[in-house]
Amino acid sequence: MADGTLEKHLRERRDAGRKLLVPYITAGYPKDNWTRLVEGMAGAGADAIEIGIPFSDPVMDGPTIQESSTRALADGITPGLAFDGVSRLDIDVPLVAMTYYNICFRMGHERFAQSLKKAGFAAAILPDLPLEEAGEWAEVADVEGIETVMLAAPTASDERLPLVVERARGFVYGVGLVGITGERNELAASALKMASRLKAITDKPVLIGVGVSTPEQAAQLAEVADGVIVGSAVIRQILDTGSIDAAIDFVGSLRRGLDGD
């Protein structure tokens, strides 16, 4: 059964007064040093790291993450190579796999869950597998020791939200706005509202992602939520500079923003 590695880890840190930071990277981007990027982000203060396994048709992702996925796929990344890279990592923060359901479905639920576990992942996010479709996978994942993070969206009714939260393992991923991933100039009011709606109904760690782009936005949001997930803004650093150092520095600045430094 799932031992709750991720949730335990996040709860302990949260209960110690820390605001949680989960940056996202795309496996295979940049081709030669994405694993060093993961290690660098762990060193820069990430509490867990979300690693995307690229899919050809990422409908929940905006242009920035699409671009990183397209490049990684063109450079030959496969689920197997992503698992292999992750299994060689030398870090002490939990890892969360993010991919679309067909990657999991094609491999088979059990084999996918076992492969994640073997690679060293603690949890999985499948953004196109909503509550009604998640049952079969989530039960297998529970058995194999992979925590299934569920997405909670601003469009969910007050009746639906607790059902989603109930099925969530690891943490609850609150979607900060009605839309796809991508950088935004301003924090959406819906992000704060999502955080307070979730905090009002659960003691599980509540992290908000999608449209969280700057240290200031992260800090503002963490006044209500337990933490943030930042994806596109991290990838943007690499796309703009061609170097992973800028992304690692950026994660450091997010950390300082959350810590109030």
């Binding site: 953004p127 196109d128 009604e132 479709e133 909670a152 969206a153 469009t155 969910a156 979607v175």
Partner: peptide, 12 residues
């Protein structure tokens, strides 16, 4: 068949 969409779209 089924309904494999992001959570945001489920209510819609």
């Amino acid at each position: 068949g089924g309904r494999f969409v992001p959570e945001t779209l489920v209510p819609a």
